[in-house]
């Protein structure tokens, strides 16, 4: 039981860290001059990278939802 709890807590912190990292790199603070070429689908490079990271955040969100969301049966067991 304790093992399960510490595992789930470790996963939570890992996810917080993962989301924070993705959001930090979604914001284009690390581009110097020349963050614009080559164009990706007609958009500057920094826009393409930032949009791709946004897609990664969405994918991680969906994955976490499916991986960690409690089921309805978990709840009824908890209530008993």
């Amino acid at each position: 039981m304790r093992d399960h709890k510490s595992k789930s807590s470790r996963l939570s912190w890992l996810l917080v860290f993962g989301f924070a990292l993705l959001f930090i790199f979604a914001v284009p603070w690390y581009w110097g001059e020349g963050g614009e070429k080559p164009l990706i689908f007609g958009m500057p490079l920094w826009v393409g990278v930032s949009t791709f990271i946004s897609f990664l955040i969405s994918s991680l969100t969906a994955w976490v939802a499916f991986r960690t969301w409690p089921s309805d049966s978990d709840e009824s067991e908890g209530d008993e």
Binding site: S54, I57, S58, T61, A65
Partner: peptide
């Protein structure tokens, strides 16, 4: 209606900014 409905809804909503704001 249920946790499953909410979970699927949230997972779908995660992609919708790419179809609207973008």
């Amino acid at each position: 209606r249920s946790q499953k409905v909410l979970r699927n809804g949230v997972a779908t909503m995660a992609f919708l900014p790419l179809t609207a704001s973008l």
